[in-house]
Design a protein around this nucleic acid. Structure first.
Lengths: 211, 211
DNA sequence: CCGCATCCGATGTGATACTG
DNA sequence: CAGTATCACATCGGATGCGG
């Protein structure tokens, strides 16, 4: 879409930068997983055409959303990472993800999901510093934890709560706020608190009434 | 883009629905100005090709984002309006607008702006119920007011504060939180409170530090 | 392998014209 | 006013090539 909307409007301007096909998915990937190599991105995007990916990265770099960095010799490779401007897209992607969840049906099987999806999914699902509690998630073979408001891979040392279930259970926990969709050991209250930080907790109840 | 991203991911799914060119601008228009006719949309979008607009509206309707409604005889006409699902995009568009503002330079002249832009701009800029105060905005010939957390066209009866200036001043007020960029009569504090509800007030200070 | 650049058929876009 | 029809053209997606 090299063609701009040519409107004096922040939304049109934002879309001029990240509105092209694949662009926001590149940002999603960098937000959820951190700095990545070209071919990692290409794989994660379900193969979007190497030329397209190259074009998007070049454009995003030109716009100051993404930065290219060369790693030191031991692992000589180039990685792409978000600039501060690019990091600023987190709330946008976060809201978009929650809106998308409304019309996305629960996952059918864990096979659909790429290995290592859980930490990224949690990072995208929850705001940055939602709670000081420590919660461990064991979802369909994946393992990740909330520690001090941050998401880590792997188990937690002394979790306040452990959430156990499959991807469908996590879906219902996040979308329907159904604490019964997963198995929770420890302090259920901290999980409820975490859910209260979701955009949906303000929106969903309002849907039946007038918005 | 009739072609879906075909990923099990809420963001990819959201973009399958509103990620096509022009789609989010249609939503923006309906969010900011309420139900509109086909040709009003076509004008507001800077002429995006009637076939494209028709295709987008059809797709958005099919996806349950937009609804077509026929007005009663007196003003026999068809209008498009957002469904509850479509209204749910408000936080998304809201965040996107604030991100876009970061790299959008101040307006050069008021000529750039379509008549009646102010109420829509205020509705997009500020969250839904930010304050109970009553504030009147007089920006470059445009007139709009915050009353009870809602934006109205025209003057306010008994405003707590009156904000006077041009479009550039409003820009700096919203982006830089510069209360000096406009002329404020009455209680400055209620304007400062309103600014505190912006996403930027949480993000901008954090940019110099680590995000 | 990694990081692209090039070529090409399929598809989407944009301006104009035209119809109910 | 509310679209549909048409057509030149840009872009996309997929395959392939190719130097480091």
């Amino acid at each position: 879409m090299s063609k701009s909307y040519e409107q004096y409007c922040p939304i049109a301007h934002a879309l001029d930068i990240v509105g092209e096909r694949w662009s926001l998915l590149v940002v999603r990937e960098l937000l959820a997983r951190g700095p990545r190599r070209y071919s990692d991105l290409h794989d994660a995007l379900g193969g979007c055409g190497t030329n397209i990916l190259a074009a998007r990265l070049k454009e995003l770099e030109r716009q100051g959303v993404v930065r290219k960095r060369r790693l030191p010799p031991p692992a000589a490779s180039t990685v792409y990472e978000l600039t501060e401007l690019g990091e600023g897209l987190r709330p946008v992607v976060h809201e978009l993800a929650h809106w998308g969840l409304r019309t996305l049906s629960p996952p059918t099987a864990d096979d659909d999901l790429a290995p290592g999806w859980l930490p990224g999914a949690l990072r995208l699902a929850f705001p940055e510093s939602p709670t000081t509690a420590c919660i461990e998630f064991r979802i369909g073979g994946e393992l990740a934890s909330f520690v001090g408001g941050e998401v880590r891979e792997g188990a937690a040392d002394t979790p306040d709560a452990v959430v156990d279930g499959d991807a469908g259970g996590l879906y219902h926990l996040v979308v329907d706020h159904d604490l019964g969709a997963v198995d929770i050991r420890g302090r259920r209250a901290v999980v409820a608190e975490l859910l209260a930080t979701l955009p949906g907790s303000a929106l969903l109840p309002a849907l039946t009434a007038a918005e």
